[in-house]
């Protein structure tokens, strides 16, 4: 894992994508996240909006954009869940920010690094979600950490497959 200066990495390795990808991929992630669990039932151990947030935050290496994208996707998820709007929003805002910040500092082209980052950020997202629900809202929600662990693994596997596919769509100078 090579560590470069933040400015150097931001200047030379910011990935750009067609506008259609920016618009379509997040929407598709939310749609599939709502539709696939109907087919997979309780084995739907993944969070596609989180994976997409991590991908764009790492690629753009811009914490503000990462935070905003994560926040919007999280709010969309909340809107569909029937729970108060903002729980997932806060969690994914934080995930987007952290992913972009780490993306500035380390080389994230390596698949193993991406896999580990997605895994850890998934757990951070879950922890933030439960923190908000339990301590900020004071709601009595039980925690099933095994399920969150499976979800983190599922996100990592999806990232391993999806990130190279999305990398192919980036605009090359």
């Amino acid at each position: 894992m090579s560590v470069l200066s933040a400015d150097a990495r931001r200047d030379f390795e910011i990935h750009r994508y067609p506008a259609l990808i920016y618009a379509l991929v997040p929407v598709l992630a939310v749609v599939l996240q709502a539709w696939l669990p109907r087919l997979l039932g309780r084995f739907a151990w993944f969070d596609l909006p989180l994976v997409i947030t991590v991908f764009f935050a790492l690629s753009r290496r811009n914490p503000i954009q990462g935070s905003i994208l994560g926040g919007i996707l999280g709010i969309f998820e909340d809107a569909l869940s029937g729970h108060p709007v903002g729980i997932n929003g806060i969690a994914k805002t934080l995930v987007g920010y952290l992913a972009a910040t780490v993306g500035i500092l380390v080389n994230v082209e390596n698949h193993a690094v991406r896999l580990i980052m997605t895994f850890l950020l998934s757990l951070v997202g879950s922890a933030t979600y439960f923190f908000v629900v339990r301590f900020l809202l004071g709601m009595s929600v039980d925690t099933n950490w095994m399920s969150e662990l499976y979800k983190a693994i599922g996100n990592s596997v999806i990232a391993l497959v999806l990130f190279p596919l999305l990398d192919r769509t980036k605009i090359r100078d």
């Binding site: 539709w35 109907r38 969070d47 998820e77 569909l80 869940s81 099933n144």
Partner: peptide, 14 residues
């Protein structure tokens, strides 16, 4: 049923 909430914490479907 055409969709779900997408999260395990919420058992809502569309």
């Amino acid at each position: 049923v055409i969709g779900t909430s997408g999260t395990e914490q919420s058992r809502v479907f569309t």
